[in-house]
Simulated assay, not measured.
Amino acid sequence: MVVSVVYGGTPEERGPSEKNAKDIAEALKERGYSVQFLQFDKDIIKTLRAVSTDIVYLCVQGRGYGDGTFQGMLEVEGIPFTGSGMRAATLINDKILCKFLFDHYRINTPKWDILTKEQYESGEYDYHGFGFPFVAKAPTQGGSFGIELIKGPEDLPLIEKVFGFDDPILLESYIKGRFYTVGIYESGDGIVALPVVEGLDLDHQDEASLKEDRLITFTGTYGIKESNLDTELASQIRQMALQVFKITGARDLCRVDFMLSDDNIPYVLEINAVPGLKKYSLMPLAAMQSGIRYEDMIEDILLSAVKRR
């Protein structure tokens, strides 16, 4: 079987995408697969055909790549691939659309609103009515790109940076608490919901930064630690993650991120259809912590897509 591991993305996400793809390719080679390591470009379909691709391990990220664009190209060409299909990937990559879905299914998520650049420039939006502090997010960006914490009126000019990525943008109430994540993937034995783990921004673990309002950015070094949540709360978060996986139409893999407020209320932040899969990303770390080898998880995701084909 020829597996083409395809990476690429926006300028911000191309580097992380390539790192994910390299580790995935090495894991698959170790398992005996014939692997092609390819960068997405306008001739990618022709390249996939030229190397006799049986299936694509999809690692492309961001708008114009992993937001349903590449998935749609592959569906039209009839080339199997890992991960969510075009429709689900498009939905998942738009944080505003996901918010509507969360509200419809009564999944707890931070208070939110939509802001257009026209509203921002005219000064007509009622920020005080929405409430400070809040987070301004570019709805189609992954990672920590296009996101700013607005603590008060003096920070409103920071929103201009977010409009550099998208228009309209998402405003989301800031939840003070801790960041948790749940990785989900499909294997031959069914859906695997990894344990709830706490995500750690290791560049900001000093006592001073933990006390202040700040965003968990994961732009530097990061890690996880086993959650010390009680069994009932951890189970609630996992069930919320599984519900998000189901209602968005995700398949093969995803990662659902949460903030747990200081009074222990879980809020779904977002779902990622193409989560980081380099060996020491959040989801693989959670798998390894629960005794699942990295190579096993990577192969299970591939075999889930093969079985569907």
Rank of each mutant, 00 (worst) to 15 (best):
E124S: 15
L149V: 05
V135H: 00
K137H: 10
L115A: 13
I147G: 00
K117L: 07
F100T: 14
K111C: 08
S122Q: 15
V135P: 00
T109E: 06
L149Y: 05
C98L: 10
P110Y: 05
N108F: 11
F102W: 08
E148P: 01
E148D: 10
G146W: 02
H104S: 15
Y105K: 11
E118M: 13
F102S: 12
D113Y: 04
K111H: 04
V135T: 01
F134L: 10
T116E: 06
D103H: 15
V135K: 00
I147D: 00
E148Y: 06
G142K: 00
E124I: 12
K111I: 09
F145A: 09
Y120K: 06
S144R: 03
I150Q: 00
H128A: 15
K117M: 08
G129Y: 01
E148M: 03
F132R: 12
R106S: 14
G123F: 06
P133I: 06
F102N: 09
G131A: 02
K117I: 09
D113Q: 02
K111G: 01
S122H: 12
I107Q: 11
I92R: 00
S122P: 11
K111V: 08
G142M: 04
I107N: 07
L101T: 04
T90Q: 13
E118S: 13
I114Y: 06
S144Y: 02
T109F: 11
F100Q: 14
V135N: 02
D103M: 11
K137T: 07
T109L: 06
F100E: 14
Q119H: 01
Y127Q: 03
P133F: 05
E148N: 07
Y125C: 03
N93G: 15
Y120N: 02
H128P: 13
F145T: 07
L91V: 05
A138R: 04
Q141N: 13
S144K: 01
L101E: 08
I147R: 01
G123C: 04
D126M: 09
N108Q: 15
A136V: 05
F130L: 10
N108H: 14
F145K: 07
V135R: 00
K99Y: 11
P133L: 07
I150F: 00
N108Y: 14
R106Q: 15
N93A: 15
Y120G: 03
Y105V: 07
T116D: 04
Y125F: 02
G146D: 04
S122K: 13
Y120P: 02
F130C: 08
K95S: 10
Y127E: 01
G131I: 08
F134Y: 09
A136S: 07
L149G: 01
Q141I: 10
N108L: 15
T90A: 15
E118I: 11
I96M: 12
E124W: 13
T90M: 11
L101R: 04
Q119S: 08
D126E: 01
E118F: 10
K95V: 08
G142W: 01
L91H: 05
L97D: 14
S144E: 00
K111F: 13
T140R: 12
K117R: 14
D126Q: 05
F145V: 07
P133Q: 12
E148L: 06
F132Y: 14
P139G: 03
F145P: 06
R106D: 14
F130R: 03
F102E: 07
I96C: 06
Y120S: 05
H128S: 15
Y125T: 08
T109P: 04
F100G: 13
